[in-house]
């Protein structure tokens, strides 16, 4: 998915660069007799309309794919409680006591089961980002003190998954991580 996004961006980058270069070169070749664009108001209208339609299509296709709606009408078969605290994650099958945040040594999930991660923080804002074994970010939410963010996900591939903190949380932010296994 990320690679497709990069390709889309590079394509748009190429188009923009070509347009700006072409327009610049047209001015270099222009003489005093040239009068610029024939009907700029009409062109502007069409340009805006096309842009509006493209963005409208993008919005209507992508908004329903927002993570807030993932498996919204299903009941999770598994709940994993997550508490972030400088600079570690606590993962547990049960609710975590802020006064004594203790979790499981190892969390094992099943392939294709619907898991709900209930993510919070006991100090500052953290990120809860799940990376697959190829080092690709596949899902995330924030860990915010005083709130619980619920992330629903089904893991289609078994293996070891890493959790990285993706919200800057202080001097050991870069080593704040955890893991779990999908069987």
């Amino acid at each position: 998915m990320q690679q497709s996004i990069l390709m889309l961006f590079l394509g748009l980058l190429a188009i923009s660069t070509i347009v700006f270069t072409y327009v610049y070169q047209s001015s270099q070749k222009a003489t005093d007799l040239d009068r610029g664009m024939a009907n700029p108001l009409k062109s502007r209208f069409w340009f805006l309309l096309i842009l509006f339609v493209i963005l409208g299509i993008f919005a209507s296709v992508t908004i329903p794919k927002s993570p807030y709606y993932f498996y919204a009408d299903e009941t999770p078969s598994r709940v994993v409680h997550v508490a972030a605290k400088q600079f570690a994650f606590v993962l547990s099958n049960n609710a975590i006591d802020p006064k004594n945040p203790v979790g499981e040594n190892a969390i094992e999930l099943l392939e294709n089961e619907l898991v709900e991660f209930r993510v919070t923080s006991f100090d500052v804002n953290h990120g809860f980002a799940i990376y697959n074994k190829a080092g690709q970010l596949i899902a995330q939410t924030q860990a915010m003190p005083g709130y619980v963010n619920k992330l629903r996900w089904k893991f289609s591939e078994p293996g070891a998954y890493s959790i990285l903190c993706l919200e800057y949380c202080g001097m050991a932010h870069q080593i704040m991580r955890s893991s779990f296994t999908v069987k």
């Binding site: 347009v19 700006f20 003489t31 040239d34 062109s43 842009l51």
Partner: peptide
């Protein structure tokens, strides 16, 4: 999301387009 998308319309359709119109096939003192 919608505001972020819509913000690009006046920016692209008016400001950017105006710059392009001003330059396209016009003699410019670069």
């Amino acid at each position: 999301q919608i505001a972020s998308y819509l913000a690009s319309l006046p920016a692209a359709g008016v400001t950017v387009f105006s710059i392009l119109v001003a330059v396209y096939r016009n003699k410019i003192n670069w």
